[in-house]
């Protein structure tokens, strides 16, 4: 059984059909990168996996459990599926420590007295243990994004979703975030990324998915797809982002 099973998923916003029958499997330990032009439905698919968007038709299962916005244990499921956003979405009124420990403490994952240790542990994994008492506003974009990743890691997720997490960063800050994600990949975390970082997609991902016009246009081994794209759309896309 795949960790994530996506079957014939359709999603429309008003009269615009954004996802037109997506089918995709993600196995445990997979690093799946989703690439494609703006408006191809990549981010919407990611949001559907976490039930931030309700699908119109089809089915998404995570660890065998069918995802729906009205499912009774949606909160428990979301605790197993971390998502990192393009705009970081750290809570500005909480220190780095509180950003990280808020959910683990409130959901009973960790007792309050152990929370700081947990924060230090996950911050060390993203190289920011010295920023535990900082406010988000005092951090660079790259540091904020690494804290956002640490915040997800603190929930010990089984799956991590990344929605264009380097797009809002200055070029010189992209590397530090990618390095953290590479480390996570090496440690066996299952990850689905929407990204424009072709280097990451080529070298770290275990599976590449090219989306076009709301469909999975091509998918397979990244090295093979980059070397020999089957469709002119992927060929054009690869040459346009080089």
């Amino acid at each position: 059984m795949a960790l994530v099973e996506i079957r014939d998923v359709h999603k429309s916003f008003g009269s615009v059909e954004v996802l037109k029958g997506i089918t995709l499997d993600v196995e445990k330990g997979d690093i799946v990168t989703i690439i494609g032009r703006s408006g191809s439905g990549k981010s919407t698919l990611l949001r559907c996996i976490n039930a931030l968007e309700t699908i119109d038709r089809g089915e998404i299962r995570i660890e065998g459990e069918r995802i729906a916005a009205d499912m009774p244990n949606l909160r428990q499921l979301r605790q197993r599926v971390g998502i990192v956003f393009q705009a970081f979405n750290l809570f500005p009124h909480l220190t780095v420590e509180r950003n990280i420990t808020l959910a683990p403490v409130l959901t009973g994952k960790v007792p309050k007295e152990k929370a700081r240790d947990l924060a230090l542990d996950v911050l060390a994994r993203v190289g920011l243990a010295d920023k535990i008492d900082a406010w988000p506003e005092q951090l660079s974009g790259g540091q904020q994004q690494r804290v956002a990743i640490a915040r997800c890691l603190a929930m010990s997720p089984h799956l991590m979703l990344f929605d264009e997490v380097t797009s809002a960063l200055d070029p010189e800050l992209v590397g530090e975030v990618l390095k953290v994600m590479e480390d996570m990949a090496r440690q066996g975390m299952t990850m689905i990324l929407v990204t424009h970082e072709m280097g990451f997609a080529r070298t770290v991902a275990t599976k590449l998915v090219f989306m076009h016009q709301g469909r999975v246009w091509e998918q397979g081994n990244p090295a093979e797809l980059f070397a020999d794209p089957k469709t002119p759309e992927l060929k054009n896309f690869i040459s346009s982002v080089k």
Partner: peptide
Amino acid sequence: QLEAGQCLGL
């Protein structure tokens, strides 16, 4: 901000 909270299972 609300979505970030929801996604953490709150």
